[in-house]
Amino acid sequence: MSAFSKYRHAFLVGLQSNLVYRWNFAIRAAFSLFHLVVIFVLWGAAFQGKTQIGSFDLGQTMTYFIMILMLQFFIGAFSEDYQISEEIRNGLINQFLLKPINYFLYRISIFCAARLVSGLLALIPLALILPLLSHHLTLPWDPWRLALGLPAMAMSALIQFTIAYCFGLLTFWFLEIQSFIILSFAIETLLGGQVFPLDLMPSWLFEISKYLPYYYQMYFPVSIFTGRLNDPMQALAGLGIQAFWVVVLLGCANLLWKRGLRRHTAVGG
């Protein structure tokens, strides 16, 4: 079996199993919708008597948050860390050690399938509420945004997945990793720009954040798409830093995997 077709099968299995968990998807979508209401109420009130906050108007701010929410369904890693942790803990991982399958590639194939399903499903409720939102949305349509935004989005997905993968691998050392995951989730949510647009922070903090991996796991592609980043050269430079972080994180994942396996003991007959 060629390497490609191996992981294609993993991808297809991932597709099927994710279509089964529609209930989980529905709950997540409902939570996201309520979260969007909180954002509308809060920012709507903050914009009262003001036309601009941080040189963006209410429409642009809402577009930013809606885009974040959408992209989460396409590129966000939400339970991959738990799944990997679970596979290590209950020994399911042992079968991969005996077969010519790369565990990282196997998991990422499933991740891609899962996000394809959740992303496409998320388009349905979005299409339904679009008439309500359309007067809030202002998307700039320059061709370069798509040309640079899509690769940025792909690398964001890779960063998100690899961080989750690394946290999952911590199970080799710690029995319970939930607290690590939620702590890291808080940092990622904040510095990824999901709580507020990062450009609203004091400028020195914003400059620092541009060198951290979190900036590239959500804020970066969203700012390209929604017009918070308007200089193609700057976006190109951003892609460079993003690629650097992808390499670093893949290196970490590889190191953790090798070190972790040394501690791992497979029991059973």
């Binding site: 009130a45 903050a46 906050i53 709580v195 609203l200 004091p202």
Partner: peptide, 12 residues
């Protein structure tokens, strides 16, 4: 979040 929003506005 509160701090960031209030660095751009005086009242919510």
């Amino acid at each position: 979040t509160i701090e960031v929003i209030y660095s751009h506005t005086d009242s919510i």
